[in-house]
């Protein structure tokens, strides 16, 4: 059983007879394969996550399903995936057209990313660009990427607070420190937690750079 966004998918099903498909693309953090849902009609990318816990099964109507899995399809920022290819191509250190950057023998379905609308606009967050003979050329910019990721961290922190997610990494004892101390520690826990969530979508090296950029203390 899974839970994709409701109204969205129902609308999508009215508009067309095909165009929703699951494909395997790279996981931008691990470099391994992961399943994504692509909507070819609305040109949107969804990430699939599976909730798995030991010793669970489903009863579904008059049947039993031994794996108690619950799949989630949630909208994904395609820039994380494109960034995976940009950082790889950066080793060559030059401006390149996007269709030469997003190339993958292991996951040939990556060409679907190039069809996403507004991708050019999104690329401004993480690249320098040049236009020659009305063709666009891009080069990864670490500086811009870190600024973009910092905004993502802030946005995620706000959601953690709204959803009252318990981010406490350590037991806090108010008796031993002043009120200010408590709240600044708490703030740091939120940054660290948000940094951890974003780090699931970027390579390790970039995650370390982001940690420095956010002035997070080295983990003990």
């Amino acid at each position: 059983p899974g839970a994709p966004p409701s109204d969205y998918l129902k609308d999508a099903s009215k508009k067309m007879e095909s165009g929703l498909m699951f494909v395997k693309l790279v996981n931008p953090c691990s470099g391994e394969g992961a399943i994504y849902l692509f909507d070819m009609c609305l040109q949107q990318l969804f990430e699939i996550k599976v909730f798995k816990e030991k010793h669970h099964s489903w009863f579904i109507n008059q049947s039993v399903q031994s794996e108690g899995h619950l799949h989630f399809a949630t909208p994904m920022d395609p820039l994380f995936l494109v960034l995976h290819y940009l950082t790889k191509a950066d080793k060559e250190g030059k401006f390149q057209p996007l269709d030469q950057v997003v190339v993958d023998d292991l996951f040939p379905n990556c060409i679907l990313l190039l069809k996403l609308p507004d991708l050019e606009k999104l690329l401004r967050h993480v690249t320098e660009e040049k236009e020659i003979d009305s063709k666009k050329y891009y080069k990864y910019s670490k500086e811009k990427t870190l600024k973009w990721l910092e905004k993502k961290v802030n946005q995620t922190m706000a959601a953690l607070k709204i959803n009252k997610i318990n981010v406490g990494a350590r037991v806090q004892s108010a008796a031993f420190c002043s009120a200010d101390q408590v709240s600044s520690d708490e703030e740091e826990d939120y940054i660290r937690y948000a940094h951890g969530l974003i780090s699931d979508y970027i390579p390790k090296e970039l995650s370390d750079d982001l940690s420095k950029h956010l002035k997070l203390p080295e983990p003990p």
Binding site: K49, T74, M76, D77, H125, T156
Partner: peptide, 12 residues
């Protein structure tokens, strides 16, 4: 998770 995912993936 979906509400957190929305925060992570919404455009900045």
């Amino acid at each position: 998770w979906p509400s957190l995912a929305a925060a992570i993936h919404t455009q900045v």
